[in-house]
Amino acid sequence: MTAPGFCVNAPLLPGFAQPEDDAQRVFRVLLDALSHPGRIHTVPLALEAPAPLATATGAAALTLCDYETPLWLQSPDAAPWLRFHTGCPLVERPAQARFALIDDPATMPALADFPQGEPEYPDRSATLLIQVADFTDDGLVWSGPGIDGETTLGVAGLPAGFWRDWQRNTGHFPLGIDLLLVAGDRIVGLPRTTTIREA
């Protein structure tokens, strides 16, 4: 069985070298990232994820995804690697996803297209890994749980209107989605409780 866009004979890149320990270390980075929004964290291992996935995206997917987590991919190139190492089912529509990997934010769906949870179960909502160009020292002021007062951090590579979309997302709390922004091996948490304004 062949799917368009990839060759089944190409050897797959390996996953975690030490699955149990690596997953634990990456999880702690993700936990830290969502506990301290707006702070840059680094994934502490050298994982070569297939294009277009960044190291941190691949590491997070291996840590969190399995057969219980429907995954939506913006581009299909890494599908065989993700399917092989996690066993996660791939879904066609953002609305079916538990996790979503975005490698080209300019053409990504609206945040509202992903599951927002239900009033009784707001946890039944998507988590998005969005690959951005870079993090910068200024530009945006972040506040909310996990932040002692305010913190400043800029994000390069998100489309115009993204932050307006984000503001709508935070406005429906407790419903909403949660984001992990990735640049290479660096990762920044952006849970639905975080308010962002221009500096």
């Binding site: 320990d21 993700l30 969502l34 506990s35 969190l64 219980e68 707001p122 988590t127 949660d178 409780t193």
Partner: peptide, 27 residues
């Protein structure tokens, strides 16, 4: 037994729950 007793699948399920818990404080 597994490291810290729980199997990897159970840990993943718990870890996903914990990340949502942090994102929705008190829920």
């Amino acid at each position: 037994y597994n490291f810290a007793y729980l199997d990897p699948q159970t840990k993943r399920m718990l870890r996903r729950a914990l990340l949502k818990a942090v994102a929705i404080p008190g829920y």
